[in-house]
Amino acid sequence: MLIRCDEPRRLGVPDPEARVRFETEQREGGGWPGRRVLVVDGEPAFELSHWCGTCPLLFRRLVTATQKLSLEDVRERLTGTLAAPGDGGVFDAFGALLPEGEYLPVLLRVEPRLVIPGREGDYFSGEQVDTWGIDQFWGLPEYPHTPYYRTFETAVGSSAHLYEFVVPLVPPTWNERERVEEYVELMGRGAVPTAVAVSTLDVCEPAIGFGDDQSQHWGLTHFLLDGHHKLEAAATAGCPVQLLSLLALGEGLADAEQCARLPALRAQPRSARKTGA
């Protein structure tokens, strides 16, 4: 459910001061650009979709992904429901963790479903294989090296589909059990707490088809800054949680027109992609 989407805002700090930033690694000797990565506290945390846009959608946790972020100053405010993205200074507080740039603030209500790679509901061994087939070198689907949450999907058109993911910076097994149980109890009483994420929109389409469903994949990926315990609790209890997404414009594989379509797409009813649709 889309609650509210505000106008894009410029926020953030100079890159060297940002605790979270997006980088493209450079190959030795020049040539083609290297990996796109999400960097947390100076360490590459996730490998992202390849810059070409024809390779499969990707968020792959790296061995240096060991940090999660939260801000004590707004912790109490996020225990409850936000009416707007900027309520209680939340937008600006988390903006100070990010590199300077344009961000689209989107406030959502989601019902997360925890997915284990390779098991039922896994995008990488399901919908992605339907379009790209398995990796031609490894003979296997892509593997994200992390559990993640699926929250929404909808049609972009007859040959394009939006898939939404919430990606914890560290696995749910690292969460404190007592805090998860506290949120389960809180949600059982009707509370809808708020998580915060920095997000990217990647639009990927294969240049050569090895799958049965040749379609364009719009991947809306939310990397959790705050809310690891809340998302696990919501998935456990089958309850909704709010998600404040700070969509980093210009950092994903989507142009301005595609990003501008996102609020309307996110307001559509949920619908699954039918293979060969």
Results as ranks from 00 to 15, higher is better:
238 G>D: 06
198 V>Q: 12
156 V>K: 00
3 I>E: 02
104 L>G: 09
3 I>H: 00
142 E>W: 07
44 P>R: 05
222 H>A: 13
150 R>D: 01
18 A>C: 09
45 A>D: 10
69 L>E: 10
120 E>F: 06
241 V>K: 08
34 G>I: 05
241 V>Y: 05
207 A>K: 09
204 C>F: 01
66 T>H: 06
170 V>R: 11
185 E>G: 13
115 V>F: 02
221 T>N: 11
49 S>V: 04
155 A>R: 14
223 F>L: 13
195 A>P: 01
117 P>L: 03
271 S>L: 00
182 E>H: 12
178 E>W: 02
275 T>M: 10
195 A>W: 01
145 H>K: 07
183 Y>W: 14
65 A>W: 07
165 F>W: 03
102 E>T: 09
225 L>K: 09
146 T>N: 08
102 E>P: 00
40 V>A: 04
187 M>F: 10
171 P>I: 07
258 Q>G: 03
54 T>P: 00
74 V>T: 12
214 Q>W: 14
246 L>W: 03
53 G>C: 13
119 R>H: 15
86 G>S: 11
194 T>Y: 08
245 S>W: 03
128 Q>E: 14
84 A>C: 02
274 K>I: 04
139 G>C: 10
139 G>A: 12
136 Q>L: 15
126 G>L: 12
77 R>I: 12
25 E>S: 00
145 H>V: 02
265 L>S: 02
171 P>M: 05
197 A>H: 07
94 F>A: 08
25 E>P: 00
231 L>S: 09
20 V>Y: 03
237 A>G: 04
188 G>A: 09
149 Y>W: 07
275 T>F: 06
20 V>H: 03
157 G>R: 04
